[in-house]
């Protein structure tokens, strides 16, 4: 658990980044401010909020983020679950935008809903993949030791 001021700074910063990214990727600039805010909040809740509880120090958090960007280093199993969870949440929110142009006229095609759903589904898939991955790695390691 990060200390409160650090956690607050961390969460606000990531919320702002998500908001800006959403607008850059085509969320309305002037209208639908609340919708975009909800989307940014959902993304924060899935990715940054667990991080607040997971990491003990700010340094480690930044280190893991840097490692995520530069694709090196080995996070602990818990951290890898968090990383998979957040990356897949982004991908889900990204991919969910595909339903917007379709002319089906359904209520769930309204702006933030598909991305929200995509975000949560992506997060679940991410957790699932991460857990399977950990399981597979442990299993292979166990088999190796057994052979020896």
């Amino acid at each position: 658990m990060l200390s409160l001021p650090v956690a607050a700074r961390f969460v606000t910063l990531s919320w702002a980044v998500f908001y800006i990214l959403a607008v850059l990727f085509g969320a309305p600039f002037f209208s639908d401010i609340i919708a975009t805010a909800v989307l940014a909040t959902a993304l924060t809740a899935v990715s940054a909020l667990p991080a607040v509880f997971l990491f003990d120090s700010e340094e480690r958090a930044v280190e893991v983020i840097l490692q995520l960007f530069s694709c090196e280093g080995n996070p602990t199993p818990k951290e890898s679950v968090l990383l998979f969870n957040s990356v897949f949440a982004f991908l889900g929110a990204w991919a969910a935008a595909a339903v917007h142009p379709l002319d089906w006229d359904r209520w769930w095609q309204r702006y933030p809903l598909p991305s929200l759903v995509g975000c949560f589904i992506g997060a679940v898939i991410g957790i699932f993949i991460a857990i399977t991955r950990i399981f597979v790695i442990k299993r292979t390691a166990y088999n190796k030791t057994k052979k020896r």
């Binding site: 700010e58 340094e59 930044v62 280190e63 983020i65 840097l66 490692q67 960007f69 530069s70 280093g73």
Partner: peptide, 25 residues
């Protein structure tokens, strides 16, 4: 952009501060 970050010269090193994250990006 992400790919560029992956292959840049500046490697992550200590101390890991928020400022460094900005500098890295």
């Amino acid at each position: 952009f992400l790919e560029k970050l992956r292959s840049t010269a500046l490697r992550p090193r200590k101390p890991f501060k928020l400022n460094f994250l900005w500098k890295f990006v």
